[in-house]
Simulated assay, not measured.
Amino acid sequence: MNGLIITHGDADGVCSGAIAYNVFKDFHIVFSNPSDLPVTLRKISREYLKIIMSDIAINNFEEFKECICGLNCEITYIDHHPLPQEFDLNKLPVTFIHDENACASELMFKHLSRYLDPDMERIMLIGAVADYADDTLYVKEILSRWDKRSIYFEAGVLVNGLESFRKNDERKEEILRFLASGKPPSHHQGLIGAAFMNSFYEEEMRIRIKNSFKRIGKVSYVIDPKGPLGKAATYARSISGAIVGIAVSIEEKKADISIRTESNLIDLNLIVRNVASKYDGSGGGHRKAAGAKIPKDRLEEFLECFSKEVEEALKHLHISNG
């Protein structure tokens, strides 16, 4: 069949894509992200008979609907990110599989389980651990059949190793195909070496953040951490004691932003969607992990506004509970 797998390039996206590829071995593979998904969809050839999309949030429903409706093929969309408020499934010609309480790897595995090689359980578990989504009943049940320590080790290898190939779709595709065979990440020579080196780089980054973070109210941020933005945001939060940590990478005219919190009192997805749209950008994610892309000359305004929105959310919660 002439088909296509569109997935995110992080560990959960690669694992869910590998699970799909284990079944659909003749499908082409494309990596995308929430900001670039409309562009990706508009470039798709109409010759495809089936498209599987995984682990990519929908930032703008109307734009997404326009792109999807222009494709004359069978479409399956599998994701776990919060949906836009204006989302209307009845307007989409797709098979829609969505659950915010499970990772994309788990959802993909459940969807295709009857066709999968049994060893793909391990790839699903690795994706779940990598995405901090290993606490569902389904994952716990399957994890009981494996050694937890080995699964966590493999997830660490994949997460750290992929950081070296963040902008290299060709290498990520090769890794996805390797995982689709059921083999663990540590058996991939390129991944294990990259993971080893990146563990040193991460420690150097963590030490730098101690001396370079800045703080605005309840938000701590670091610019150009020279390392994984998600981890940098986590370290900025934990080292400073702030409620929210932000890490920013400046790339040409854009600021790529990663945001993390451990607080149950705020919803980063809602806040970043609102704030990013005010500054000609886009954003979204989960309650405790989100991201955004905005013009770099609006970054200072974005940070100030984001901090105020966090304060307002906490103040509103305090008033509501008062």
Rank of each mutant, 00 (worst) to 15 (best):
L71D: 05
S238D: 13
V139D: 01
K167G: 03
D256Y: 02
I239A: 07
Y48V: 04
S238H: 13
Y221K: 07
K278P: 03
C73K: 03
E309V: 04
N90R: 04
K293A: 06
D135M: 04
S258T: 05
H187C: 08
S258K: 02
F27A: 14
G9M: 10
R287M: 05
T234A: 10
I5R: 00
R46K: 14
S164M: 03
G127R: 11
D119I: 10
S238L: 15
G193R: 11
I78T: 15
M53W: 00
I58Q: 10
S32V: 15
E309H: 06
F61C: 11
G193A: 13
H111Q: 15
F87L: 05
A247F: 04
P184F: 07
F96Q: 13
E300Y: 12
D99I: 11
F165V: 02
A276D: 09
Y48T: 01
G285D: 06
S105Q: 04
D267T: 09
L229F: 01
E173S: 08
P228W: 01
E312W: 13
L125M: 15
H98K: 04
T40R: 14
I175W: 03
E251S: 07
L92P: 00
R237K: 15
I75L: 11
D224A: 07
K65V: 02
H111C: 11
A290Q: 00
I175C: 06
E66G: 10
F196R: 15
D147F: 08
C15R: 02
N59V: 11
L41R: 00
L162P: 03
D169Y: 15
I266A: 02
L314T: 12
E301I: 13
R42P: 00
S258M: 09
R260E: 15
P185K: 01
L265T: 10
L89C: 02
D10K: 00
N22M: 08
A247H: 03
G245C: 08
G182S: 11
L137K: 14
E141Y: 11
D131W: 00
I257R: 00
Y201M: 09
I207T: 15
K226W: 04
R298F: 03
I56C: 11
M53Q: 04
E204C: 07
S212L: 14
A247L: 12
D280S: 07
R206Y: 09
H188P: 08
Y21F: 10
